[in-house]
Nucleic acid binder design. Structure first.
Length: 187
DNA sequence: TAGGCCATCTGGTCCT
DNA sequence: AGGACCAGATGGCCTA
């Protein structure tokens, strides 16, 4: 796994919103080739693409063609989607900044960020459990409640992922530090 | 050059 | 009805 700190990517030039999918990417294979609902989408998109090809790759004329209002809606929709993705990326960045990791010079990828965050949370939970159980033996403090919650989470996780081995609190700490290490090695 | 990661576009579906 | 969300497709950039 590699990560990199690369300059901001330049945005791909916006495609002609009036163009049919076939016009924009003539070589594009039929989309929606995976997933249960995809079959319907596949058929409808393919039909549209084929229709465009049948017309020599030109925009469908007449009522079948995209009206200006529909083009405008598509552009607005694209813009909203961009903003949504930007927000998502901002959230990823915020998450990166609170996860301690050894490769401060290199940006964590999204998958690395999520994986590391998950194990970081687990290790923190384990740490808190260890500390609170040590300091509050038998008391009705946060320790026992936290431990109950932890056990519930463990049981749910084990139920969700069939055959997932239950990891003891200290195991998460070990796993997290191992992962940090492997990310460093893998760079 | 292949593979990984990413941004963007797009159409379908879900939700308010 | 319109916006949010989702997933597939595509192409660019980067590194090994």
């Amino acid at each position: 796994m590699k990560t990199k700190s690369r300059p901001p990517r330049r945005r791909a030039p916006p495609q002609d919103p009036e163009a049919t999918p076939a016009e924009r990417t003539p070589d594009r294979p039929p989309p929606g080739s995976g997933g249960p609902d995809a079959a319907k989408a596949l058929r409808s998109r393919t039909a549209r693409a084929q229709g465009a090809r049948a017309e020599g790759g030109r925009r469908r004329p007449g009522p079948g063609g995209r009206r200006e209002s529909s083009v405008q809606r598509r552009l607005e929709s694209n813009e909203r989607e961009r903003q949504r993705m930007h927000k998502l990326n901002n959230a990823f960045q915020a998450l990166r900044e609170v996860i301690p990791h050894v490769r401060a010079d290199k940006k964590l990828s999204k998958i690395e960020t999520l994986t590391l965050a998950k194990n970081y949370i687990k290790s923190l939970t384990a740490t808190i459990l260890t500390m609170s159980s040590g300091r509050l033996p038998g008391l009705d403090g946060p320790g026992p409640k936290l431990y109950q919650h932890y056990q519930q989470q463990q049981q749910q996780a084990a139920g969700g992922a069939l055959g997932a081995p239950e990891v003891p609190p200290e195991g998460h700490l070990q796993k997290y530090s191992t992962q940090i290490h492997s990310f460093r090695e893998g760079s």
